[in-house]
Write a protein that binds this DNA or RNA. Structure first.
Ligand SMILES: [Mn+2]
Ligand SMILES: [Mn+2]
Ligand SMILES: [Zn+2]
Ligand SMILES: [Zn+2]
Lengths: 142, 142
DNA sequence: CTTGCGATTTAGAACCATTACAACTTGATT
DNA sequence: AATCAAGTTGTAATGGTTCTAAATCGCAAG
């Protein structure tokens, strides 16, 4: 489970599409994001990948995450002051941030809702992306 | 226009409701937010209020902004890594961030749209707040 | 193969927004 | 006037991120 990328070829391909090389570091960083669908910080990713490549540096983790964001395999998420979080879920989705636990959940975002949201924009506003963030508590069964 | 609070009494009242005192510093900080409806950072607020109270410190600006957030007169907004921005618009609204200029605009958010958005939450997710952030470019007439 | 060379990695310094701290001030209450 | 808590101030500390310069890597030309 730990050091295998789900789909190494598509990673290399996506990187190449953005003029970037594939490297072992980029593979393990991407893998660390895929194997656990939380929204880890750079530090948390660093902690995970050290078991794969013990010599990897935090600077490299930042570099790799930036590379993955640049080739659109990963989204950087900022919903509060504090470390940036990284999300490998490419499907359109909103985020739910549990204030009590700090956990972040992906919430499926139907395209019909997305287009309703975008429709509130007056002419002259050309949106390339929409972020929707819920804050609250999660309760009971989920 | 610069050093007059729109409604000093309601400010004092809201502060009192949260067990906080009114002070000249809190008045000018709040005023600085109201007189220009952009979404300034603490540093930008600091620059503005120095002409009202030249001895005010940056720490106090942070303290005042926190007090205003705490009594719900101001919202702290974070949509990217970088300094927190402050918004005195209490009406439900989304934000549009112009990536080219860095400017942030308030977008009116009809309650009907807001409830549609909230409806995507599965049971067990109890949202207290929703943030909607558009990113893109503003063009032509607006 | 070797060598050349740009891309990548690395450790550590620098940076910057924010928070913590301790001394000082203010102003309401006795 | 003396007291006391809340607020302000300058400055130090913190923490996440970016910068820098020196190694290292890996493809490509010779
Ligand atoms: Mn949180
Ligand atoms: Mn921006
Ligand atoms: Zn996500
Ligand atoms: Zn706003």
């Amino acid at each position: 489970m730990s050091s295998s990328v789900i789909n190494p070829e598509s990673l290399a391909q996506k990187l190449a599409d953005s003029g970037l090389r594939n490297t072992p570091q980029r593979e393990v960083v991407y893998s660390a994001l895929l194997t656990k669908r939380d929204h880890p910080t750079a530090d948390e990713v660093y902690a995970r990948v050290r078991s794969d490549i013990s010599s990897i540096s935090l600077a490299t983790v930042y570099n790799c995450l930036e590379a993955l964001v640049q080739c659109h395999l990963v989204r950087a998420v900022n919903f509060e002051r504090g470390p940036t979080r990284y999300c490998p879920n490419l499907a359109p989705h909103a985020h739910f941030h549990d204030e009590a636990t700090g956990a972040t959940f992906d919430i499926d975002l139907p395209s019909e809702i997305l287009s309703k949201v975008t429709s509130i924009l007056p002419p002259g506003y050309d949106a390339e992306a929409v972020d929707i963030i819920f804050r609250g508590k999660t309760t009971g069964t989920r």
